[in-house]
Design a protein around this nucleic acid. Sequence first.
DNA 1: ATGAAAGCGCTAACAA
DNA 2: TTGTTAGCGCTTTCAT
Lengths: 338, 338
Amino acid sequence: MDRTRVTIRDVAAQAVVSRQTISRVINGSDLVNPETAARVHAVIAELGYRPNAIARSMSRGRTQILACISPNLTDHTFASIIQGAEGAVRAQGYFLMSTSAPDVPTFIALVHELTGGAYVDGLVIVNPFADDRYCYFPSGTPTVLVGARPREGVADSVALDDVAAGRMATEHLFSFGHRRIAMITGPAAEDCTQDRSSGYRAGLCAHGIVDEPSLVIEGDWSPLSGYRALYELLALDIPFSAVFAQNDQMAIGALRAARELGVRVPGDLSVVGVDDIPLAAHVDPPLTTVHQDFTALGAEAARLLFRSMSGNVTVAEHIRWAPKLIVRASTQRLEWLG
Amino acid sequence: MDRTRVTIRDVAAQAVVSRQTISRVINGSDLVNPETAARVHAVIAELGYRPNAIARSMSRGRTQILACISPNLTDHTFASIIQGAEGAVRAQGYFLMSTSAPDVPTFIALVHELTGGAYVDGLVIVNPFADDRYCYFPSGTPTVLVGARPREGVADSVALDDVAAGRMATEHLFSFGHRRIAMITGPAAEDCTQDRSSGYRAGLCAHGIVDEPSLVIEGDWSPLSGYRALYELLALDIPFSAVFAQNDQMAIGALRAARELGVRVPGDLSVVGVDDIPLAAHVDPPLTTVHQDFTALGAEAARLLFRSMSGNVTVAEHIRWAPKLIVRASTQRLEWLG
DNA sequence: ATGAAAGCGCTAACAA
DNA sequence: TTGTTAGCGCTTTCAT
């Protein structure tokens, strides 16, 4: 079927004009005689000609492809970010090539190949870790960081305001009378974890509550880790009336542990999550959580990337997106205020 | 920083050999004098040379990029498939460019641009609808269909055995004594919905149960649709003791509706889902479901694609993946057997 | 308004 | 073992 691809040459020959004229026509140049253009279009249709994107990239020196690297594609938050970015990117006539790098070596290799090979015109990096492992930045390829704190250099960044999210969750619990608030965190190495934790501590501190380090357990964002964390917390024999889980998955795991242990939520224990995943409203009890607009974040990342690709920009922009509290049924006012 | 990219020319000049020799070295040809190769490597390192992937694609006539098009990236099942495919694809030194096409025009445009422009060497298409809207196949670009029934032509396909999944769920309920089994389906136009529905009917039929069309409600895979569907079913005033929801999200939505309406699961109503999403084990009650290995499916799709790209293959292969029942706590033996 | 020439950076023949 | 000669399919000068 695809023996010899139709090229610009074939079209030129058939339409009896030069290749340049064909080039002008397919690029919508206005210095082409309308009649010529019409003829060329006819021939293009007749021959089924399609410009070769690679050849075009070759001579133009850019590919119209942007890449996005995230730790994985299955996490709903990453997927939403990517989805948002993809929409914005395609709206500009570019492609977004999404790839995932589960570990650091893969990540480095990917950045290396993608940018070093001139495959892509720009790069979106989702959720670099807080330590500097992920700080291998491509030189010469515009890059924007999503979900990370600003890093030195010119890379732009966008992130949710995780400090605010942590604080918002904590303040909500405080306003409901809770004073002893446990926390289940994400992996300690991630920016996001650190920021949500700061928000939590700031929230406690603002009300003169000393935070109890033993009430903080590290999870890995998975429901199972939240489930185990609550078991651990309950085994501690240190009283607490609320749990702030740094994401909904872990919060849902904690809900299950509570059920198994006969701890009623929100009667005995209030639980708050972060993210507002689609299932959050449907679990039992419906989860109070801090909503984050990941799709908008992704779109914003794309916007920054285009800005940065347009050149003549030297100052890096760092954007923080505000979260929003969604109160459902997993939190409740503490009755027996002491 | 990136004024003039270092090219093969610069390296050749600096190492005092021809460009061809450089090319041989970077491609690992063994007909290069080891000393020469060492010198070239030194120069490459010194100059920071990185081969230009576009130029390479240009002269080789292929890009080492495969694309994957799915309806969206946020659905956990699609994401898992893509993840599986990506792993397999990268293991072969290729990239997988994942994109999403929420609607048919976008889909068509994407296929057109991606394949027509020679951007990619192969294509993975996830979950085409059952009607023929998605049947616009690229000619000349190896393609494999995932999650769809085989289509005419040479495109390979892999899918989960959805008929078996539907039947398995139904048989499980039957074996627990349930005779009046409602069903919440996905969108009627999708292969997957149709197949799971056939499995359901086959399961009923095998035991001489006449299926009650009013007990079948169409959802859209979202938890909310499952939630609403159960409300509808319960309003019908037709007795049933079990619900087969065609995916876990809808099953979880149904669980919530049951809770709100005071219908105990599994006491009054047994619920089965399909997919076994990570949260399925953590909801209340833990969901009995039909596990599907989406990641393996994606990897298998990649394998077929490589096979088909290797040429000399004329017969299309159509693979079906077997599902597996996971019994948790949302289903229960019917006590009051009539 | 159109064409001719040159080249993007690399690889694939063929020579030597 | 290494170099030479041509392109890959398109866009970009610069002429005309």
